[in-house]
Design a binder for these strands. Structure first.
Lengths: 234, 234
DNA sequence: AATTATAATTATACCGTTATAATTTGTCAA
DNA sequence: TTGACAAATTATAACGGTATAATTATAATT
């Protein structure tokens, strides 16, 4: 791992271990340079990373302070690791409804930027939290990129497999959210009643090369899903 | 304005003017250095800023490419400028329901990190898009920081006033979203029916010094509100 | 034509320096 | 005690350099 990432992790760990609270001050740059035996710019990079993650904030002329004050149980929408990470303290289970290779619809082909005769994996899953339905997820993977999937992989973390198993690098994602009312099918799968609220999200995931490889539609159980978004001024 | 910000703006403008599409390549670093007469690190900083904004992405060994492929009409949740910016092509109007100085409830005091005997401005507004209700917003401002508000300011952009009028610097925000069903009061204000879906968000806005100055609760009209979230790998 | 090895391109990591701007602290006067 | 001013502290801006790693292009080999 890179030096500045390591340092960022160590600083994050330091905050955890010492239970530093919102607003508490971290050592100044010069001290961090000595502490971690790195140049100024490397420390600055580590701190910038932590700031991007929403863990600290920096004030010119004053210092670097702890930001994080998470409410637990919220799904963070900033990084795109799936919610395994946010909800890791909870019991998340998965039921696979469908897994097969198909030809994409026009919508899927457009979002994955492929031709309609190219193969895609279609994966439909229901996710549970503490046995309650959390969401229904319908995903399409470009088979040229995600060359192989099986039920076992799909029951566990697909993203973990994509990164570790296939050695692909996930780069960024575009997510579009909207609200509406559940239809019969959705209500049945979520164990809710048609006409009740739904939150649905379409997300396109890109490799770090910029190629889209996953187009997903998720319908959330409005009783379970809570989101957390950290904003910054730019 | 800072040099790297200026360059970032110029590059963004360049993308707009030349209608560069998703995936198109920008000039390489060295060329940008010459073009904008800046050092490598300054260009890198400008590009990092644009990457943070979701306008470009960079691929090591390959180049810098255009990312943005916005669907129009979505409210971006990444930066915290309010939605004036995202929906500026639309006609947004505001109706002020209440504006007064009050003592905070326990919840408000906690979120603004103040004592319960300190004053806060209470602002309640309904926002319309094309004459349709977009959301009901109930905000509390720490009066020690936001020392003065009047109906005119509150009808226009409060954030613009805070930054330009009061010279305060907005730093970051924490937003917590969840879904539910509208109660009678909310339904009445939004022109909807009780029991219909709602999306509600609590947001705490901080100055760049880290002090919270605004605690807002927004209830969105599920028919109008659509959100856009750009994720990155960290 | 396909594969493999090599070279060129290109962004990123990491180092270090000087200057600058925001904030905080200290000092002195009223 | 308050206010104004000066000094110290601290992060940030901007410069520039070398080394490295990922990608792409080219050449060599089969």
């Amino acid at each position: 791992m890179l030096k500045y990432q390591q340092i960022a992790n160590q600083i994050e760990q330091f905050i955890e271990e010492n239970q530093l609270q919102q607003g508490e001050k971290l050592p100044i740059l010069e001290n961090l340079m000595n502490q971690y035996n790195a140049s100024k710019s490397t420390i600055v990079k580590a701190l910038d990373l932590l700031e991007k993650k929403g863990i600290i904030f920096q004030v010119r002329g004053s210092g670097t302070f702890v930001r994080r004050k998470d409410r637990k149980g919220y799904i963070s929408l900033l990084s795109n690791q799936g919610f395994k990470k946010d909800l890791d303290q909870f019991e998340i289970t998965t039921k696979v409804m469908d897994l097969q290779v198909v030809k994409p619809t026009k919508e899927v082909a457009e979002n994955l930027n492929i031709l309609s005769d190219q193969d895609v994996y279609h994966v439909k899953r229901i996710r549970y939290i503490h046995g309650q339905t959390l969401c229904v997820e319908e995903s399409y993977y470009n088979k040229e990129i995600v060359t192989y999937l099986n039920k076992e992989i799909v029951t566990e973390s697909i993203f973990h497999y994509i990164q570790e198993g296939l050695g692909l690098k996930v780069g960024f994602s575009d997510m579009y959210m909207q609200m509406g009312k559940l239809n019969d099918e959705e209500a049945r799968l979520l164990g809710l009643i048609a006409g009740e609220p739904k939150m649905s999200a379409e997300t396109i995931f890109f490799l770090s090369s910029g190629k889209p490889f996953d187009f997903s539609k998720i319908t959330y159980n409005y009783q379970q899903a809570q989101f957390f978004i950290q904003g910054t001024n730019m």
